[in-house]
Amino acid sequence: MKYIYYPGCSLKSTGKLYEESLLAVFDALDIKYEELNDWNCCGATAYMAVDEKKAFVLAARNIALAEEQLKDEAEVNIVAPCSACYMILLKTQKFLEENPEDMAVIKAALKESGLDYKAKAKIRHPLDVFLNDIGEQEIAKRITKPLKGIRVASYYGCQTVRPYSTFDDQRNPVTMDRLFKAAGAEIVDWSMKTRCCGASLTGTIQEVALPLSYIILHEAKKRRADVVTTACSLCQFNLECYQTNIDKKFKTDTKIDVIYFTQLLGLALGLEPKKLGINRLFAQPENLFRIIEGGKPVYV
């Protein structure tokens, strides 16, 4: 089976390291994929705030493009690693399915651009693919550098499992925990997994956003986590890059490694840190390197 990889805007910029690590892990697990040709922005949260129908057509165009690109495959699976993209694509499908009139408008508009929106593609999150298509056992077999002794606090952020996804529990998701358990890590039990980090406000209303990130980082430290793993480029950026600002504001020390779950998985699979975009992190996760035998810190 072949997947369509829909990166979305942020995996090409702030989330570059997410893309690098994801694709490296895909290769390591023999997952075949093609990047979606000439994809456009999913519309994200901001577009929905201005014009709903256009937001839906933006997302629908990508789905239609994927259906076209994989027209010879039995089923079309779109992997959307960015949680906003993932949520918007799911939301679009659900909304159009429930509103045939809007579906007709969107279909007709796409038809004029030579695209056929069949609404059949499956929207998948990489976690869903890893756990349900590959499986924990298969992944465990390929782990060459077990995460022994590493306490992982898995953090999904808000839009990965809320409100439309069905691959995990919306209140207490566990797929990431299962993944890292398979990789030999210790799992931190905490209630921050889906608490909003405030990323969509950090750029705009920072006074509101910083406390939200502080709560999450503070709690991770309190629970003696070695690393926080995220599945969202906004969360990762927000929780990692604002640590200095947070510490200044709250007069605390929240320094903790916040990396993509694909980066940690990649390290466990024995991949080169550089291939996983580790060099693009603000601070090198030296803690992890010390524990993962053989890994060497890579500085910029």
Binding site: W190, S191, M192, I215, E219, K222
Partner: peptide, 8 residues
Amino acid sequence: SEVTDWAL
């Protein structure tokens, strides 16, 4: 909305 054990 929730009962939690984390302290603010």
